[in-house]
């Protein structure tokens, strides 16, 4: 009687929290309040990141000025993985609690994630040509990132192919969760296999392997891109939820 299974207790408590917070009206008022802050963070971080990355940061000892592609390539690659993780969490929430907002977050994040994946691939190949000597090579990191791009495409295609909204949401959510296996593969590919691609520069738990004068603009750019994602997601969600309720 007294001891409920911990998992079930957590689930039901989460539900109480979610139904209150994740309802579209609450979300809208919250998003409206947050949007200017995101814009401010985006503008400030982008300004510092661009000036720092293009002017203040010294040239690399090995790659010279060419390493400045780092400041767009790394944030794009980071966001491509982060957005997919957000989508996977949203998909799980949507499937378990049948939350309309969670499905909307999943669906509206997909095009953004696809753009970032595409940009990570293109900036990476523009960086690879002068440094490695080739635009493209089928190494584990590049190939798994390309698979991620196809996953995003597949997610968008599946969602638009199914006419029934509920079915589309559920089927896509399952595809998103299945595709999530690719995320750790992308992240650890450079450690698990021999690749042409170098290891990760930004590390969460260990000190980053980059000089501080080069690191801060990189962090600023990453923050700016995250803020961009938040802004774009809120704008897209607002449209999607409004047009949906307007249609009924």
């Amino acid at each position: 009687m007294f001891k409920k299974p911990l998992l079930q207790k957590m689930l039901s408590q989460t539900q109480v929290f979610l139904t209150r917070v994740m309802s579209p009206p609450y979300f809208f008022s919250f998003a409206e309040k947050c949007l200017p802050w995101f814009v401010a963070v985006f503008v400030a971080a982008l300004a510092y990141g661009l000036i720092g990355g293009l002017f203040l940061a010294p040239a690399d000892y090995l790659q010279g000025e060419g390493f400045r592609i780092l400041y767009v390539h790394v944030p794009c690659a980071f966001l491509s993985l982060m957005i997919y993780s957000v989508m996977a969490v949203a998909a799980a929430f949507g499937l378990i609690w049948r939350l309309k907002l969670a499905f909307a977050v999943m669906r509206q994040s997909a095009p953004l994630g696809m753009v970032f994946t595409f940009l990570a691939l293109v900036t990476g190949s523009l960086w690879g040509k002068p440094m490695w000597g080739t635009y493209w090579i089928w190494d584990a990191r590049l190939t798994s990132e390309l698979i991620l791009l196809f996953l995003y495409l597949g997610i968008l295609a599946l969602h638009s192919a199914l006419p029934n909204r509920r079915l589309a949401d559920h089927a896509t959510a399952i595809l998103v969760l299945i595709g999530f296996v690719d995320i750790p593969i992308i992240h650890y590919s450079v450690n698990w296999w021999n690749t042409l691609h170098q290891g990760s520069t930004l590390r969460l738990l260990a000190p980053s392997l980059i000089a501080p004068s080069m690191l801060y603009p990189l962090l600023a750019m990453t923050v700016a891109f995250c803020a961009y994602y938040a802004i774009a997601l809120i704008l897209r969600l607002r449209c999607a939820l409004l047009s949906e309720s307007g249609a009924r």
Binding site: A59, G64, E65, G66, R68, I69, V72, H73, V122, T123, L126, W127, K129, P130
Partner: peptide, 12 residues
């Protein structure tokens, strides 16, 4: 950018 401009600017 020391010759790297043709790669850096299209990326940005």
């Amino acid at each position: 950018l020391n010759g790297y401009g043709i790669y850096v600017w299209p990326a940005y």
